[in-house]
Design a protein around this nucleic acid. Structure first.
Ligand SMILES: [Zn+2]
Ligand SMILES: [Zn+2]
Ligand SMILES: [Zn+2]
Ligand SMILES: [Zn+2]
Lengths: 149, 149
DNA sequence: TAAAACATTAGAGTTGAGTCTAAGGTCAAG
DNA sequence: CTTGACCTTAGACTCAACTCTAATGTTTTA
């Protein structure tokens, strides 16, 4: 049986994180020593690794809790339940990428329009664009054709 | 002069948010009524719109504070200061997109490998992949050589 | 045997950008 | 004159996933 710092080293989760995950109901040490120390077995290690893998992919702790309950009794859960979680996450990811791509486009346009030099900013087209009050939201293509200098 | 709910409606920022921004040092009402009510003028409206525009693009409140200080005295600031902020933000955005793209790829592969049907999950390749303990991280390149149903 | 290293717990703090509450003051209308 | 809509403040709460602290107990090692 491993003490908490040993399973921590083995799994790459910190002792703090392991105790936090326990509080969240994700993982428990299967035994305690006389003194109350957490003691982890092989199955605990595999479970911790499952959690870390899922976390690294990007699943929330809530998602992971559900995945763990499926893992506990695969026979009474379906592939659909599993894909529902993955698809939900993927939809979130798509949405965030869309938002970020819009931000990227706007920032690139702004940067392309500004000389970026050591001259004073009285003529700066980025400042002008921000002052333009044209609420440029996330989707759709923007113009911002103010050429500077 | 506009009361706070009036400028709120005009700018699309809530009264709570306006007061919060004031606490953060971004914007002040240029006057107060006898009773202590905030009173905003035209310049305040333009400033609030500047803030909203910058926020919608994705700048942090800290970035916006700097942009506002530049805006206050453009002559003693340079285009470079402005582009530094925009480029910093753009770098952040690139990084997040990279992370999310990795997550997207992983999730798509997982989803492609799973039948997603009403059958029980004892054979589920997503569950298998999560149990595989192959630590698939977000930064750096991933392999994602998954086994199939 | 004593110091170092590790363990326990409850609980507070972090980050960012708000959101909301309580307890009260002010103002226009009926 | 009272109702309701508005305004004020300080401060607490929200979300997510940790991260850290304090105070104390245990185990290992020199
Ligand atoms: Zn310039
Ligand atoms: Zn410029
Ligand atoms: Zn299946
Ligand atoms: Zn499956």
């Amino acid at each position: 049986m491993l003490k908490i710092s040993e399973i921590a080293k083995k799994t790459g989760l910190s002792t703090h994180t392991l105790r936090f995950y326990e509080k969240q109901g994700l993982i428990n040490a299967s035994q305690r020593s006389e003194a109350g120390y957490r003691l982890y077995g092989e199955a605990d290690v595999r479970k911790a690794e499952f959690i870390r893998t899922a976390r690294n992919i990007g699943f929330s702790l809530d998602d992971i809790a559900v995945l763990l309950s499926i893992r506990l009794d695969k026979a009474s859960h379906t592939c659909q339940e599993v894909t529902d979680i993955a698809r939900g996450k993927l939809d979130e990811v798509y949405e965030k990428i869309t938002e970020l791509t819009a931000m990227k486009a706007t920032l690139e346009i702004l940067l392309a329009s500004c000389c970026g030099g050591p001259e004073d900013a009285t003529h700066c087209s980025i400042m002008e664009a921000l002052d333009a009050s044209e609420a440029k939201q996330q989707s759709s293509s923007g113009n911002t054709a103010t050429n500077e200098v």
